[in-house]
């Protein structure tokens, strides 16, 4: 229909922001997003999007975007690390806080963007792992 669209690829996906789950079509050229089209057959949004889903996709190709874990070295500078190393560091941090200040010094904030199963795991992790009920969701945190 339009000559300028022949080099454009359309990929159906779900918006990466909130938990509503709006369907959208990512328009890409040379593997870069150039536009977002709302999906009119999307069951959650029926063609609607908000400003974030519609226009806020710059982060995908932004040079500042983190593409690997970072941990602080002895001088406090962030250094590239493996996932195992980063998770080990985070776990150690949590355990240190708990030992020093008690189990209620840990507070979990679950995400509204994740599925129910992931949020179930999150509250289980905080309640069973640390023994505190300090778990909430991002819309109240």
């Amino acid at each position: 229909m339009n000559a300028t669209m022949s080099d454009t690829k359309t990929t159906r996906t779900i918006c990466g922001y909130c938990g509503v789950g709006c369907s959208l079509d990512l328009m890409t050229r040379d593997n870069r997003i150039i536009a977002v089209h709302p999906a009119f057959d999307g069951p959650a949004n029926q063609g609607a999007l908000c400003v974030k889903g519609q226009f806020a996709y710059d982060y995908v190709h932004h040079p500042d975007r983190l593409t690997h874990p970072l941990v602080r070295d002895g001088e406090g500078r962030l250094q590239k690390a493996s996932w195992d190393e980063a998770l080990q560091r985070a776990a150690q941090g949590f355990m240190d806080v708990e030992q020093r200040h008690g189990r209620h010094a840990v507070y979990g904030v679950a995400s509204g963007r994740t599925p129910s199963e992931a949020n179930y795991m999150m509250q289980k992790f905080i309640r069973v792992g640390f023994g505190t009920n300090y778990i909430d969701n991002c819309s109240r945190a």
Binding site: T4, A35, L49, V51, F55
Partner: peptide, 25 residues
């Protein structure tokens, strides 16, 4: 306006248009 883009996507002539997409293109 909240810049949701609904007007852009329903416009049958392109009078209201995705400025960001045209810029990126």
């Amino acid at each position: 306006c909240t810049f949701c883009g609904q007007c852009v996507q329903t416009c049958p002539t392109g009078a209201l248009a995705d400025k960001k997409a045209l810029r990126f293109a």
